[in-house]
Every structure is written in structure tokens, then in C-alpha cells.
């Protein structure tokens, strides 16, 4: 169930932070009461409206970390302090954890934004957090310094070795899982990476929560565009955060996704 009123609200941009070569964070002068894992639909009037994970929401202000990849995300990254954008939500499921657990967070790309939000909430609840960030090179890393300041264990992997270990962040996850003691794996990023992480967790018998991103329009479980084959449930409502068993049961996850018309594309 959602809030009964899902009209967008125009909110002020308080601050704009260039995070790296691709990602810009917008600090908004409003809260939607989101928890880690949830997303909002962001509206630029007369342009479009698209889904973005909440990168922080402290009850007073919220943050969105946006990777500039196309027309809408570029327009969002070009926004200036003092301008307004429309926001509605929060939509979707949350990451779940228990006090004092040992968590492994695996982030690729802008996935380090919602996972940083999770890391900070989990740290408050006495969890031990392994924060594993991957990127193609140093210039694309996100939230590494901030995570260090949080005091969680930070692991960095870059494809070209320009920072941290050279190679995929999933190799780091493999090592951490081998050491044992992880209660749950959390992952946000490219689906190929998440698929690999899900399989690794399954092999080790460790729980995992995966942020499944599909082409979303309404965010409220009506348009049907984001439904994941298998159960066929809308990922905007039953996801984005879904349990390991659910995603691996789906013939779609890790293999294909649908565009805005419903056409399938392989990963």
C-alpha cells in the first residue's frame, strides 16, 4: 500500500555536489521519510520523470546521487542550487538487517549511494559492515572516503587497478565470504555483478538482498512495465530490494530486462 496521494511535490535543491566523473549528488530541502533501498520518482516538469534511489534521508533533508548516462540524468546533474524538482515516494521495499549483524555490501556504479545510506544506518545499529566498492577506475569511485569516515571496513577494487585491488569487486566479496561470519550480502549495481554476487551467496548458504532495477514508469504497481518474469510481480512494489531466493527463481534476473515498450533485451 502506498500513500493515497501520489502527486509530485516540488522541492528545493539546497546543494549540488560533484562526486566523481559521472555522479552528482543533489541535496534536497525535504524528506520523504525514505529508508535505505527505497526510491523516489524525480520529475523535471516538461522533460520527464525517472526513478532514483534515495542516497540519504535524515527526516529533514534527502540526497540523490545521479549518474549522468542520458538526457534526463544529465539534465538532473545540471540542476543548480535554488532550483526545484518534483519528487514523489518513497516507493518500494527496504533493506532489512538486525542489530549487531555482520553485513557485506557490494556496490557498483551509483549503487554505492543507496548502500552508503544502508551502511550508515547499519553502523548506528551496531552492525559490522564490509563496504565493497567497485568501479572501472579511480575517477568513478563513489562514497569511498565517506564510508571510511563512517568507520566501516572499506574495500576498493578497480578494473584498471588505479585504486585498491585490480579486478572485480566480486573477487573481494568472494574472499570475504570465504573468511566466513557474514550474515547477509546486500548488492546494488550492474545486474551482471549482482547476479554473480547472488550466486556466490547462495553457494555459501548466506542470505542476500538484491536491488532489482527494471524500467519503471509509475512506481506504484499499476503500469506493469517493471514486472519480473517468474512470479510476475512489479519490482517497484515487491522490489527493488528482493531476497536471493526470489531473484534466482526468476528466469529473467541476470539474463534479460524489458524496455519501456516491453521488448526484451539480454544483458
Amino acid at each position: 500500500m502506498h500513500k493515497l496521494d501520489t502527486r509530485p511535490k516540488m522541492v528545493l535543491i539546497k546543494e549540488v555536489v560533484r562526486e566523481n566523473e559521472q555522479v552528482t549528488t543533489l541535496v534536497l530541502d525535504a524528506s520523504v521519510g525514505a529508508e535505505p533501498g527505497q526510491f523516489v520518482n524525480v520529475w523535471i516538469p516538461s522533460l520527464n520523470e525517472k526513478p532514483f534511489s534515495v542516497a540519504m534521508d535524515d527526516g529533514k533533508e534527502m540526497r540523490l546521487s545521479v549518474a549522468a548516462v542520458g538526457p534526463f540524468s544529465n539534465a538532473l546533474c545540471d540542476k543548480k542550487v535554488g532550483e526545484k524538482i518534483g519528487v514523489r515516494g518513497p516507493f518500494g521495499t527496504k533493506f532489512k538487517f538486525e542489530e549487531g549483524e555482520h553485513l557485506a555490501l557490494l556496490a557498483g556504479g551509483y549503487g554505492a549511494a543507496p548502500l552508503y545510506f544502508l551502511a550508515s544506518e547499519a553502523a548506528k545499529k551496531g552492525c559490522t559492515v564490509e563496504f565493497i566498492v567497485g568501479a572501472r577506475s579511480k575517477g568513478f569511485l563513489l562514497n569511498v572516503e565517506k564510508a571510511r569516515e563512517l568507520g566501516v571496513n572499506v574495500h576498493v577494487a578497480t578494473d584498471d587497478g588505479s585504486e585498491g585491488s585490480k579486478g572485480y569487486n566480486t573477487e573481494v566479496l568472494a574472499k570475504i565470504l570465504d573468511e566466513g561470519g557474514i550474515d547477509c550480502v546486500y548488492t546494488v549495481g550492474p545486474e551482471v555483478m549482482m547476479y554473480k554476487a547472488a550466486q556466490m551467496a547462495k553457494e555459501k548458504g548466506v542470505r542476500a538482498q538484491i536491488s532489482v532495477e527494471r524500467y519503471m514508469k509509475c512506481g506504484m504497481g499499476l503500469c506493469g512495465n517493471c514486472c519480473l518474469d517468474g512470479e510476475g510481480a512489479p519490482t517497484c512494489v515487491k522490489g527493488p530490494v528482493m531476497d536471493l531466493e526470489k531473484v534466482l527463481d526468476s528466469p529473467e534476473f541476470g539474463h534479460y530486462h524489458r524496455d519501456q515498450l516491453g521488448n526484451k533485451h539480454n544483458f
Binding site: 501520489t6 502527486r7 499499476l222
Partner: peptide, 26 residues
């Protein structure tokens, strides 16, 4: 194949709901 409208395509209130999805279809 038929393109739909851009977002926002719908919203709801307690009393009514409004949509213009534009019937996208593959």
C-alpha cells in the same frame, strides 16, 4: 509497435486517479 507518453503518466488521490500512459505496446 506503439510508443507511449513520457512520465509522469499517472497519479492518485484519495478520491480519484488520473492516467495518460498512451498505450505503449511492443
Amino acid at each position: 509497435q506503439h510508443e507511449g507518453h513520457k512520465n509522469p503518466t499517472m497519479f492518485g488521490t484519495e478520491e480519484y486517479f488520473m492516467n495518460a500512459v498512451g498505450i505503449p505496446d511492443a
